[in-house]
Simulated scan of single mutants.
Amino acid sequence: MPKTGTKETNAVLDNHLASAQRGDLEGVLSDFSEDSVPFLPQGPIRGIAELRAFYKALLTNPPPGFPKALELLRRDVEGEVAYIVWKAEPGVRLATDTFIVRDRKIKVQTFAASFAA
């Protein structure tokens, strides 16, 4: 997929995706700062401690197929905003993330997914 947007936004997104696919918790967390706020279906989480708990659970007890079967379906980057659509079947039928990147950190993230029953 072609890369547009800022070099910084693309670098953070590239690291985030690669770290998630490796199951690298510290690599994923390095993309965030204490003032980062991911918005999840269950509500926002704040700070590295809450981020660590969320990503640790996701990476140590992942849905079937994640992260090895992660397939990026769409990637759009404009300035400091990145948007991805992905799946990791059979456990994740479809997922979407939006990231706002400033100062080489994800400041805001939105996440939603359809998980297999």
Rank of each mutant, 00 (worst) to 15 (best):
K56Y: 13
D24I: 06
D31R: 03
G43R: 09
K56E: 10
G23Q: 04
I48T: 10
V37Q: 15
F32K: 01
I45V: 11
P38W: 04
F54H: 11
F32E: 01
S33M: 05
I45L: 04
P41A: 08
S30C: 14
L29K: 04
V37P: 12
L25Q: 11
R22Y: 00
Q21R: 15
G27K: 08
F39M: 15
E34W: 07
D24G: 08
Y55N: 13
G27C: 06
L40E: 14
A49R: 13
I45A: 03
G27Q: 09
L40K: 03
Q42S: 07
Q21A: 15
S33Y: 02
G47H: 03
L29M: 09
Q21F: 05
E34M: 13
R46Q: 10
L51P: 04
R22M: 04
A53P: 00
G47F: 04
A53M: 07
Q21G: 14
P41T: 11
L51N: 11
I48A: 08
D31M: 03
D35A: 11
Q21S: 13
S30F: 05
A57T: 13
E50P: 07
F39D: 12
F32W: 13
P38D: 07
L51S: 01
A57K: 11
A53R: 12
S33T: 05
L40T: 10
L25W: 02
Y55P: 00
Q42W: 01
Y55T: 01
D24V: 06
L40R: 11
A49C: 00
G43W: 10
L25F: 13
V28R: 01
G23A: 02
P38G: 04
R46N: 14
E50F: 07
E50N: 14
V28S: 00
E34D: 13
P44R: 13
P44N: 12
D35K: 15
D31A: 15
S30G: 12
S36G: 10
F32P: 02
G23K: 03
S30L: 09
